[in-house]
Each structure stands twice: as structure tokens, then as C-alpha cells.
Design a protein around this nucleic acid. Structure first.
Length: 412
RNA sequence: CGGGAGAUGGCUGAGUGGUCGAAAGCACCGGUCUUGAAAACCGGCGAGGGUCACACCUCCCAGGGUUCGAAUCCCUGUCUCCCGGCCA
């Protein structure tokens, strides 16, 4: 949630900044109008409430003094009626404002480049050497003929866009998870194991709800399968007030992630690049505003290290405004080189949401006497399935076999 | 899933219809004292909105209800603890 008070006072500035994310300006105008209306209604309501409170307290006094309360009763009855009416008006406006405003995305940082979509993302740095092959490198689903991935049976057990790993494939997945968690742990991230079903408040907190509910699997008792462990990790301190000395807090967790991939029909239908269920190791940080830029760097660096240690060539990309996620003020993607596909593909995405999620999730910290909103950051380190793809394609041999990267040897 | 108890400020915990947003203790912050610290003493100290600042409004798990007035009474839900059943 963006800061509505700030937005009201600096409407033109906010509108201009949001243009980078191509937000409908009619929506913003609506918010501005609603804010004024709501405030007026609120004030009117509070005046009435104050009157009623005052009169009600008089009852006690009158009774003690033995005075007649008949007239007072009539006055209060009238006030009550007015309160009911005014309350209806005020709460409707408030609800409307909240609905509309919660659909406004975060304001992009100054440095975020202009752009419509991923075409305009800006490459920051290339890391590692592209591998050379004396043969035509295959794509991972061809290589998976070796039995590592069983696509057909994954589909049979669930439906399309589900797969299962077997034998060395399953072991490779487990090895990667262990390696990632160890590495993140050594770099200051506390390892946690979280509920995979979260309630609606948490999904609102991180921004998936109410706007992106279509992409979530929901249970019949109102819980949601997490689309990323960013949701539980960020919400660990939902509606709590932290001490400044506790910050920054850094967490890492491995979880499966569940996404309906609504609207992705026809994209990446082959292989395991885009699945309904995938495994991911995530990093999340809660920190002060002063700390958040440095943490962002650290998290990108941490993910990049994992790729380098696996011997995988990759690049850092700064997302342009149009490609930024709903809650992100800035995002840096890591894209790994896939020789089979002959292109770079996203394997990690690190975002700073500033106080956008913290405002929704009510995560604050005490700075002296004041309660301030924390900054929240999240990033993958790494997407496990896609790392498997990268290893298969980069480490494939002429005979179709796949070498295991050195660093994983002790894990499998 | 069945029976009982409970849910109050960072924590512990009083409060059963009327100036209660709420005693007390702990924690925390400021001060006095001290070479320094501890102890002792004095003061402050829930959250959100509102205001230049006050005033004022809302919140005692959530949602309804009773009442002029509810943390306090009633109903529903959620969660926690204990007892029983089931179970990885």
C-alpha cells in the first residue's frame, strides 16, 4: 500500500512517478476525490460521536444528583440516529477508498528505467564465461530423457504443468536445496521452516490479495497455498512492533511454491521452466529505511555467488518500470545462461518493496518513541527447478550425460 | 471431532454496566544520586486516526446484539490451554 497521506499532499508528483508503471490516472483521480470525501464524512461522524459520549456521561451525573433524565434521553436518541446514518456513509467511503487504493502499485525508485516490458530492462553486468560446445547443446527436456524428470507421470498425478523428479534428478534437487540453505545461512540469513498454507491477511500483507487472487490455489477453509515463501517470511512479524536493535532481520527458507499461472497459457509449456508447483529457496529481509539499499546489494550478491559457485554464467538486469512487480520499488533479476535455449532466463529476482508491504502488513519498529514502518526485501536464492535446468543444459556432455558441478559433490 | 477453562497495553496481570484506554508489577526511556555502574528515589511510557499543538474519534481476539452508556451482559466465530477420541 502506498502512503495515502503522502499521495494526497503530493498528488502530481506521485502520479508522475506512477506513470512509469503505467497506472491508470483515472484511478488515481478517484482516490484523490475519495480521500477528501472520506475525511469530511469522518469528521462529521466524530463530532456526533463526541456529542453522544458527552451526553451519555451526563447520565451518571444526573442520576447521582437525582435529576430528571427524560429530555436527555430524547436528545441522545436523536444523536444516535444521526450517528447510524453518518456511520453508514463514512464506512462505505472508507471501504471504497481502501479497495481502490489497495490496487495502486508501489512507486518505482528514481533510478528505475522507463519502459513497457522486459525488452527495456537494462543489463547491468555479465558474470562468468559462456560455455562452448563441440556439439549442438540440447534443451533440458530432451536431456531429461535420462530419467531425471518424469513429465507424463507428473501430469497424471496432478495435471498439466506438474512434473516429478526421479533418481539423480530428485537427488540433485535435494542437493541444491541443501547447498543454497547452507550458503544463505553462512551469509547471515536465519533458516526457517514455514507453513505452506497462509491466511488471507498474510497474502494481503505482501500484496497478492486482493488483486492477484486468480493466481493462487485456495483451500475450502479460506487458506491459500503460498505462491512463494516471501509471503510467510515477510509476514513473520505481521502486525508487530520490533525494536530497532533487532534490525536487520534476515530469513531464508526452502518451500515449494504454488501458482495457477493464470494468463500464462502457451508460455513455456515444455519442460519445467513454468510449473504450478516448483521449489524455491527464498531470502527475506526486514530492516530500517537506512539499511535497505545495502541489503538489496547484499542479496543480489548472495544469489549471484550461488550461480558463480555452480559455474553458471549469468547477468544482472535492472527491471524497467513496466516490468516491475506490483509491490516492488526496484527489482534486479539474475538471468542464467541456458545453452540449450540459447538465451538468458530469469533464475532469481530480488526486490526492495520499501515500506509498501510493511504498511499493508503493519510491520513496524520503534525508533526512539516513534513507531516507523520497516522496509522489506525479498529475493530468490535460488529457484531450484530452474537451477536444475541450468545445470542440465550447461553441464551436458556429448553423450547426453550430465556432470554434477564440483560444489555439489559433497551434497550428493 | 466431543467436554471444560480462557483471550486485556512489549510481558505478567487487576478490572463484571457509568468520567476506564484501562490498577499494579516487570521491561523500556529521561532525571536525581554516584568517579562509573548497581540499588534507591522522581517522572514518562499501548496502537491507529486527527490537530501547528490541543481538543476530539476508534481500538480491551473478531463479528453481531442488549443499553442513554459495555473491557464488563447475550449470541456467533477464531485461537490458546486442560481432559477424552482419532492419528503422521
Amino acid at each position: 500500500m502506498i502512503d495515502l497521506k503522502y499521495m494526497q499532499k503530493n498528488f502530481d508528483e506521485v502520479e508522475k512517478k506512477l506513470r512509469k508503471k503505467s497506472v491508470d490516472s483515472a484511478l488515481l483521480e478517484e482516490v484523490r476525490g475519495l480521500f477528501e470525501q472520506k475525511k469530511a464524512a469522518q469528521q462529521a461522524l466524530e463530532e456526533l460521536q463526541a456529542k453522544q459520549n458527552k451526553d451519555s456521561k451526563l447520565f451518571g451525573v444526573y442520576k447521582k444528583e437525582g435529576k430528571d433524565i427524560g429530555q436527555l434521553q430524547a436528545v441522545v436518541a436523536e444523536t444516535k440516529k444521526q450517528i447510524a446514518e453518518q456511520n453508514a456513509i463514512a464506512s462505505e467511503l472508507e471501504q471504497k477508498l481502501l479497495n481502490v487504493a489497495s490496487g495502486i502499485p508501489n512507486i518505482p525508485d528514481e533510478e528505475v528505467p522507463e519502459g513497457e516490458d522486459e525488452e527495456q530492462n537494462v543489463e547491468l553486468e555479465k558474470i562468468g564465461e559462456l560455455p562452448k560446445f563441440a556439439f549442438e547443446p540440447k534443451e533440458h527436456w530432451e536431456l531429461a530423457q535420462n530419467g531425471w524428470i518424469d513429465f507424463e507421470r507428473g501430469v497424471k498425478l496432478a495435471k498439466s504443468r506438474f512434473a516429478m523428479f526421479r533418481d539423480k534428478g530428485a537427488k540433485l534437487e535435494r542437493a541444491l536445496v541443501n547447498y543454497f540453505l547452507d550458503h544463505n545461512g553462512e551469509n547471515g540469513f536465519e533458516e526457517v521452516s514455514v507453513p505452506l498454507l497462509n491466511n488471507a491477511d498474510m497474502l494481503y500483507g505482501t500484496g497478492q490479495l486482493p488483486k492477484f487472487g486468480d493466481d493462487l490455489f485456495q483451500t475450502d477453509d479460506g487458506l491459500y497455498l503460498i505462491p512463494t515463501s516471501e509471503v510467510p517470511l515477510t509476514n513473520i512479524y505481521n502486525d508487530e512492533i520490533l525494536q530497532e536493535s533487532q534490525l536487520p532481520l534476515r530469513f531464508t527458507a526452502h518451500t515449494p511454491c504454488f501458482r495457477k499461472e493464470a494468463g500464462s497459457a502457451g508460455r513455456d509449456t515444455r519442460g519445467i521452466i513454468r510449473q504450478h508447483q516448483f521449489s524455491k529457496v527464498e531470502m527475506v529481509a526486514l530492516c530500517t529505511p537506512e539499511q535497505s539499499d545495502e541489503l538489496m546489494e547484499q542479496m543480489v550478491q548472495n544469489a549471484s555467488e550461488l550461480l558463480s559457485n555452480l559455474g553458471l554464467a549469468h547477468r544482472k538486469v535492472m527491471l524497467c518500470g513496466g516490468d516491475l512487480g506490483f509491490g516492488a520499488a526496484r527489482t534486479i533479476d539474475l538471468e542464467v545462461w541456458l545453452p540449450g535455449q540459447n538465451c538468458y532466463r530469469e533464475i532469481s529476482s530480488v526486490s526492495n518493496t520499501r515500506d509498501f508491504q510493511a504498511r499493508r502488513a503493519k510491520i513496524r519498529y520503534k525508533q526512539g518513541k516513534k513507531n516507523k514502518l520497516v522496509h522489506t526485501l525479498n529475493g530468490s536464492a535460488l529457484a531450484v527447478g530452474r537451477t536444475m535446468v541450468a545445470i542440465m543444459e550447461n553441464y551436458q556432455q556429448a553423450d547426453g550425460s550430465i556432470k554434477i558441478p564440483e560444489i555439489l559433490h559433497k551434497y550428493m
